[in-house]
Design a protein around this nucleic acid. Sequence first.
RNA 1: GGCCGGGUGGCAGAGUGGCUAUGCAGAGGACUGCAAAUCCUCCUACGUCGGUUCAAUUCCGGCCCCGGCCUCCA
Length: 459
Amino acid sequence: MPLVIHNTLTRAKEEFVPVDPDHVRMYVCGPTVYDRAHIGNARPVIVFDVLYRLLQRLYPRVTYVRNITDVDDKINARAKENGEPIAALTERTTGMFHDDIAHLNALPPDVEPRATAHIPQMIAMIEKLIAADCAYAADGHVLFSVPSMPDYGRLSRRSQDEMIAGARVEVAPYKKNPADFVLWKPSSDDLPGWDSPWGRGRPGWHIECSAMSRQYLGVTFDIHGGGQDLIFPHHENEIAQSTCAHGGAPFARYWVHNGYLMVEGEKMSKSLGNFITVHDLIAQAPGEAIRLCMLSTHYHQPLDWTAEGLRQARTTMDRLYTALRNAADVEAVARDVPLDVMAALEDDLNTPLAVAHLHELATALNKADTVLERARAKGALLASGAVLGLLQQDPETWFKWQPAGAAGLDEDRIAELIAQRAAARKARDFAAADRIRKELADQGVVLEDSAAGTTWKRA
RNA sequence: GGCCGGGUGGCAGAGUGGCUAUGCAGAGGACUGCAAAUCCUCCUACGUCGGUUCAAUUCCGGCCCCGGCCUCCA
């Protein structure tokens, strides 16, 4: 079954046909590093990580590029606010981003280029655009001339007239056309700047992705991804810049956008007080539960992030890891990802359906009774989990997770109490055994007896 | 105003022109010293009004509701 993916360019599901079947290339817009990542940032990280894992199974080589935007006016503003050098802020924030998403089991991209390390490439591209009459310098700025590109608006499906009519912001006097956007702007001495043919300045927002995707993926590449809110203006402008700078050669062939994220039914915003950072979340719940929660809704749908949803995701992971824990006595047979799981993912990354299959595989594992059947079922569940970035840790580790800063009962002490209880049970002193069970339960430790012995987990 | 996405059972959430996922929650049963886990069974929907059709939750149209974007916000 071929991979089918929803392409924003056509608003339809299309069969994925790579430019080069021996080497698939994907670019995803990464974070602007001025603050902690929030759960809205985490969604594309996780969604495109699953796509990356899937592509790796389908093609011999995949290059995944996700940039770090480390030059931006929000960064400048925040650094000033903090009284912190800009480089210190971006470096610190980049580190926090990496730390946070590591908890979400996202594989690192193959290349993670930083905008500030690619200024010469951006300047070169802007020069090409000027030479092609697609851009002009004015008043220390360089602007992209939207009327120079007849196809402008194709991705976001808006006409140039509409954009002019709908413009809410006062048009800067140096713009020839109200829709023109900035490629380069002048920097005052207190702002980061680089020497350029137009004086000391800094790049506009969109040009970095055009320059960096060109450098690492070539003129035409396969997939460009990001959040739906980037469709306009960011991705529309990238298309304009790259296409015009490359003499009309196609840019990304498939545009993939994840849906918006809301919190408890409302838009997430600082003013509503419902702004949730990944950092806070991973202190409250295992990263893998957060990841499953994200994958439980199709990437294209709006996702309503709720405390209840996260609780359910945790319960689901408990169920799956319980099946694996109960099969700890058999060695999994290495297996391919089952066909129905692959079929779900190949159908526009239908992760909720894939998760449903995970449940069916767990049930099959629970019901299997011969060693061979159990070994095969365990292998199928683990292989399916791997392509989703789930179920790869030791079940015991999963069950022992506790919130950051929580001082749960020491593991040695738990083992000691379990041993005492075992002795009591052996002596048929069930009152004593139950007392120990209660004592542990009061401290958030739940015991489970089985023929193989007693296991425990933190509630 | 323009454009886009969505409304599925108590909840989350796939999907399909007729055979009606999956999980959680709930009910019953098996198992169990207790408990948990597990297994079995049950409950069950498709915003609204029309249309097309032998048959629509699924296709088409109107309406209602929710969310987003419309120049630097994932």
